[in-house]
Design a protein around this nucleic acid. Structure first.
Lengths: 228, 228
DNA sequence: TTTTCTTGACTTGTATACAATTTAAATCGA
DNA sequence: TCGATTTAAATTGTATACAAGTCAAGAAAA
């Protein structure tokens, strides 16, 4: 069992974070303190604290004296974030290939197989979960805890968008195939290759790109539906 | 004149942040809400908000029910952060070399000259200021606002340590010389070279390294004075 | 003397009350 | 009817009050 947070505000942050990531609270939604307080049966104080934490992590925009809204990313910002994500993953891949212990390399192979089974099950959310664990093993394999935490934070921040990406037809299969090559490169210790494969794995490009933009617009996950 | 923050808590965060970065509040210092409230002549509410913001940016450690203390980095974490910084700078350098406009390249050359004059003046803090501007131009030159903001955040987080580094004898001269090569590479558009030079520029290695560790211990900027 | 338990002051977390600002609605004038 | 101005309701920011947990000092027991 996981220890429930001692602070109510921490618990509330978690709850709101999940609702934002799962688009139950879509971008642009106003977050009124009084309403949230009533809904969760607490006072405004812990609500305010939760909102400030969410603001710090970028999920909520906090305009002074004008209330909080669920942050809505422009398409431009989103692409910028994916560019950074892509480079960070590449960095992690290279370092992991160099520094992982034998045990960690085995763990990676195992998790890759788990991903495979999750993919076959057809359960998108399950695949997403296992996929996250796969990447997490790579992050920790850098033996740079600060780096791992930062990358995980960004990974987390982008999860709503990644998830959507996986819903595109055939994307799960492609993802799995790419993981195979990545696993090989890391296990062999081929830094250059691992970095290159991960860079490509994350970056949004190629034929899927316009499909992805369309689905983003459909889900109203970006603020201004720019033409591409 | 710069607009004063509307929220008192924002102002307080700024004040505390400066005191932490300048080591007036050294790592490990307990931050009692009541005491701070009395000192700044406000209630505990804005103090708490300020502390939470500082906690989010990593400057303060917030232990539930046990109060806040100025975060103290272990030497290990510090080295990890510098490794990330080094890679981020390299990434920025490469992108900037590729994407900067002519105007931006001119700005970089100008700022490099300003750094030169600041270096000759012998004023360490002034050099630090101008040095930050130089790097900032590179960050913005990536034309990736998200990346620029993230790198600036880390730069900011490490400033107490960087500053100390510049106090080492001859380090300002070395830094300036490296900037010359970096400026050349970026202006010429040599991505590979720019990235490589910036990676080396930031990373802590070579003969200075043990000197730097010593000065960190002397200033008590790292928690456990590990032997090197 | 050392260890454990209890007690009480102190500190943090949450609720409520008040002040200040914004948003909207309604009134007035053209 | 449209627009600007005023006014009232609603919402955020701050202060204060209360609840609950932490830490340390001292008493009781071994």
């Amino acid at each position: 069992m996981k220890a429930r947070p001692i602070k109510r505000s921490e618990e509330l942050r978690q709850l709101l974070e999940d609702e934002i990531a799962s688009i139950q609270l879509p971008p642009g939604t106003r977050l009124e303190e009084t309403a949230l307080a009533a809904r969760f049966g607490v006072s405004r104080t812990p609500i305010r604290e939760a909102l400030q934490m969410l603001s710090a992590s970028g999920l909520v925009e906090l305009r002074p004296k004008r209330g909080a809204v669920v942050a809505s990313l422009s398409l431009e910002t989103l692409l910028e974030m994916f560019e950074v994500m892509s480079e960070m993953e590449a960095l992690c891949g290279g370092l992991a290939a160099r520094r992982m212990t034998d045990q960690e390399r085995d763990d990676l192979k195992n998790q890759h197989e788990v991903c495979g089974r999750a993919g076959e099950s057809g359960d998108g959310d399950l695949y997403y979960e296992e996929n996250t664990k796969f990447h997490r093993i790579i992050y920790l394999g850098t033996h740079n805890r600060y780096l791992a935490d930062e990358v995980l934070r960004l990974h987390h921040r982008l999860r709503a968008y990644r998830r959507l990406q996986l819903r595109l037809r055939g994307r799960v299969q492609t993802s799995y195939a790419e993981h195979s090559a990545i696993t090989d490169a890391i296990v062999k210790g081929d830094e250059r290759m691992a970095a290159e494969l991960l860079r490509a794995h994350v970056s949004v490009q190629g034929e899927c790109f316009s499909d992805w933009i369309s689905s983003l617009n459909a889900a109203r996950l970006v603020s201004s539906p720019e033409r591409v």
